[in-house]
Design a protein around this nucleic acid. Structure first.
Lengths: 152, 152
DNA sequence: GAGAAATCATTCAGCTCCTGAATGGTTTCG
DNA sequence: CGAAACCATTCAGGAGCTGAATGATTTCTC
């Protein structure tokens, strides 16, 4: 009765489940998964404009506005002015934002541990390597995906 | 510079990407990924009620209504009356629905092939086995996940 | 250098999706 | 029989996404 499920199907299932669990784990920090990537992106690209970041993450400008609004409302990022170009902002993390990112990274590690728990260390390595190959071959960049309705 | 990405992160990325690609492949059939699971569920549970199916797939009754509406509008399923219980429907596929499911399964196989293309057959087997272990250990049932906003 | 074109951020209307609380008809329980 | 449980449905409310405008600024072009 149990047909062997395809890899693509399993990836969708596990990806969706993992994202959901990660969101739950982040709840005490009052942020969501999508915010973590943005925080991280800002931290490695201090002073970038919204559009620069949006491009790298595959997020259209109008969406970026509300993402950054979210983080600014929480006091995690600041929209600084760029003296070279007064149209664009120069985004950077506040102190609170830096701490928050650090917290979120810890949560992320815990979460990863939970997901991998059923596997031995060797198996995790094998899995990580295979997934990395797939991600590379399909040109996946670490970004914020547009919301999408999910799974069969 | 390239930190090794966690398994959980890769799963989310690949799951999201795969779901998106699958949706694109289904577009010519005028259905979406979520419909495929429902068609499949109905086909293996002929005459089940909406609530039965919803329970197995983790979908609340009010959502089920519109899912079934979608399929009924496309002429793929019929809401038959259950003579034993006139509150509940007895859902079953129309002939068109059966054909559609068959088509969708073909698309699904193609899609899986595309996702796995970068890997050798042996590697696919290893990957499938590891993912299956994870899915089992985390109690994932093949269902329609509630929509969720995705990825950092 | 002045006017035209491109660029950055923003707003907004319109759409889809999801949830939870009612509602009506039907069955089952006591 | 009357009360409670149950199936499907509707509906209002909220969240998220998109694409087309808009205003401010910069860059291009002659």
């Amino acid at each position: 009765m149990d047909k062997p499920k395809g890899v693509a199907f399993l990836l969708s299932q596990l990806g969706a489940y993992g994202a959901q669990r990660f969101a739950e784990r982040l709840r005490p920090l009052d942020i969501e998964p999508r915010h973590v990537g943005l925080l991280r992106m800002i931290s490695v690209s201090e002073g970038a404009s919204q559009q620069e970041l949006g491009e790298r993450m595959g997020v259209v400008p109008s969406r970026m506005v509300s993402f950054v609004d979210d983080l600014e409302d929480r006091g995690l990022v600041e929209r600084g002015r760029n003296p070279k170009d007064r149209r664009a902002y120069a985004l950077h993390l506040t102190e609170k934002g830096t701490k928050m990112l650090r917290q979120a990274m810890l949560v992320s590690v815990e979460h990863n541990e939970e997901i991998c728990a059923p596997l031995s260390q060797d198996e995790r390595d094998v899995l990580a390597q295979l997934l990395d190959r797939l991600a590379g071959a399909h040109n996946l960049i670490p970004g914020v995906h547009p919301g999408y309705r999910h799974l069969r």
